[in-house]
Computed example of a mutant assay.
Amino acid sequence: MKIAITGASGQIGSRLVPVLRADGHEVIRLVRRTPRTGDEHRWDPQHRRMDPSVLVDVDAVVNLAGASITPRPWTRTYEERLLTSRVDSTATISEALAAAAAADPGRPRILLSGSGISYYGDTADRVVTEDDPQGAGFMARMCAAWEDAAAPAGAAGVRVAFLRTGLVIAGGAPLMKVLGLVFRLGLGGRIGSGQQYWPWIALADEIGAIRHLLATDVAGPVNLTAPDPVTNTEFTRTLGRVLRRPTPLPVPEFPLVLALRDFGRCNVVGGQRALPTQLQQSGYTFTETSLEGALRTAVRRG
């Protein structure tokens, strides 16, 4: 396949590119700056500009572009940046794919487009699959708008799958950096009640799932989460064990919700007990189903 990647310099994209090349695929990277190598091509998602000819001979696009979500105080301006960066990037690539499909209608095309498990909102301890509806709050609305922006590609006959990704366990990930520092200082502990579910996935399985989806006929939403979501209490105890640090101090909910707004309510003091139903039904086999194993790998590589 010839595959185009957006967000190729990010945590997932930077790992995905060499893996796909090792699989024998030709990979091009879409960049916002002036291209420096032959495999780079310029696009301008902020102004929704892209030359569709770049995608005419492309078989698949993996769309991972969007401003990073980092543990920081949230403002309305920051929320708007998160939303517009995702919607603009997805709309730009989808419209270019639709134009490429019109220019060469005989080529089957695939769009694997980023999304988040926050689509479901805070679901407490209720199990959710891809059949569940959109939840409430900014994070859920952002994910829905993000997915809706891919409509032009779908209307043009492109197979579109939405990567509803959970907490990626990887060395160097912003949340892992923050949690690692807090725990190493001996200040780690459950957050709020600790009963909220944190749906996680090892980086190796995030990459493996994308490779799998390129080769299957799955379309629509796909939960990229490990088969065994854990509560925050379980997550905390496991990370403490991996780092050999005690976890005695519970963290109150109020300051986190005050600082992180809907992200805090939905993804920190809240969560999703999400299952990867579509992935497993389509035949994907996870390489890492143990949270402790995933955390040990992340700490070792962090």
Rank of each mutant, 00 (worst) to 15 (best):
V251E: 12
D262R: 02
G180P: 10
G208K: 06
E253T: 15
A226Q: 06
T225V: 15
V242W: 05
A156G: 01
F254Q: 14
P227Q: 08
P255W: 05
T165A: 02
T231A: 04
G171D: 02
N223R: 09
N223Q: 13
G171K: 02
A156S: 07
A259Y: 11
V218I: 06
L260S: 03
I201Q: 03
E234P: 04
A226L: 09
P246F: 00
C266S: 15
R237L: 14
P152L: 10
P246A: 00
V268P: 01
G189D: 06
A259E: 07
V257D: 06
R237T: 15
E253Y: 11
V158L: 04
T216G: 13
E206G: 00
L214M: 11
I210D: 01
Y197L: 02
P248Q: 00
D205F: 05
L258W: 03
R211M: 12
L256N: 03
L163R: 10
E253D: 15
D262C: 01
H212Q: 09
A259L: 14
V257K: 14
T165N: 05
G194C: 12
V178N: 10
S193T: 13
R190G: 14
L163N: 09
P152Q: 08
M176A: 13
L203H: 01
I201F: 03
R159G: 08
G264A: 01
T225E: 07
L167W: 08
L214K: 08
A215R: 15
V178L: 15
L163A: 05
G154W: 08
V242G: 04
A209P: 02
A259D: 07
Q196T: 07
N232E: 08
G208H: 10
L203S: 04
R245V: 00
L239P: 00
L175P: 13
T216A: 14
I207A: 09
S193G: 13
A202R: 05
K177F: 09
G220N: 09
P199G: 05
E253A: 15
P250L: 14
W200M: 11
A215N: 15
L224D: 08
V168L: 10
A215T: 14
V158D: 04
L185C: 09
M176N: 13
R244E: 05
I201E: 04
A153T: 12
L163W: 01
I201H: 04
G171I: 06
L239S: 00
Y197A: 03
G270T: 11
P227W: 03
A151W: 13
T247I: 11
R159T: 07
K177T: 14
V178M: 15
P152N: 12
P248A: 06
V268R: 00
T216E: 14
V230C: 15
T231W: 09
H212C: 10
L256C: 04
G180E: 06
A209D: 02
R211F: 13
P229K: 08
G220I: 08
C266V: 14
L239W: 04
A161R: 04
R261E: 12
R241K: 13
A215L: 14
